[in-house]
Simulated scan of single mutants.
Amino acid sequence: MSKLLRNMLFASAAGAALAACGGGDQATPTTPVVTTPAAKLEDSFGANFGVAYRADPNSVAKDPQPGDIIPLSLTATPVTI
């Protein structure tokens, strides 16, 4: 094997080994990923429907108020379940 070929193989092996090193000592600034929570399904049925739905089963019953429950419509956009 020629000396040039041997040096090229050594250099490429050393380069591959060094490329795998992460450097570890340097702190890299990262931006935290902020995700917004998805809207709950029960909130899409009216203003206070979701609140009443999540209430404790043994709590005091609440009479529906205007706007608590939306009217049904066959032509409205369907709610994905």
Rank of each mutant, 00 (worst) to 15 (best):
P66S: 06
A20V: 09
K3G: 02
Q26V: 15
D68L: 00
M8I: 04
T36C: 08
T31P: 01
A55L: 06
A52Q: 05
A39R: 12
L18W: 07
S59F: 08
C21L: 12
P32Q: 06
T28G: 02
L4P: 05
T80D: 08
P64F: 06
Q65N: 09
D25I: 13
V33Y: 11
V51T: 14
T35D: 07
M8G: 02
N48Q: 01
D25V: 09
D56W: 14
S73N: 14
G24T: 05
S44M: 10
V60P: 11
P78E: 02
S2K: 07
S44L: 10
K62M: 10
A14Y: 12
S73F: 08
T28A: 13
A20M: 14
F10I: 15
A19E: 06
A14K: 08
P64R: 03
V79L: 15
T30E: 02
G22E: 13
N7Y: 06
L5N: 08
T36S: 15
T80V: 15
L9T: 06
L9D: 05
L18Y: 07
M1P: 11
V33T: 15
G23H: 06
F49S: 00
F10C: 14
V33E: 09
I81F: 04
A38E: 14
Y53H: 02
D25H: 14
D56Y: 11
T80K: 10
G23P: 03
A61D: 13
G15E: 05
Y53T: 02
I69G: 01
S73K: 12
C21G: 09
L72R: 08
F10M: 14
G24S: 08
T28Q: 13
N48G: 00
A16G: 11
A13L: 09
D43T: 00
S44H: 02
E42N: 01
T77Y: 11
T80L: 07
N7R: 12
G22W: 05
T77A: 15
P32A: 03
G46I: 01
V51E: 11
G23V: 12
D56C: 13
A19H: 09
G23W: 09
A39I: 05
A11W: 04
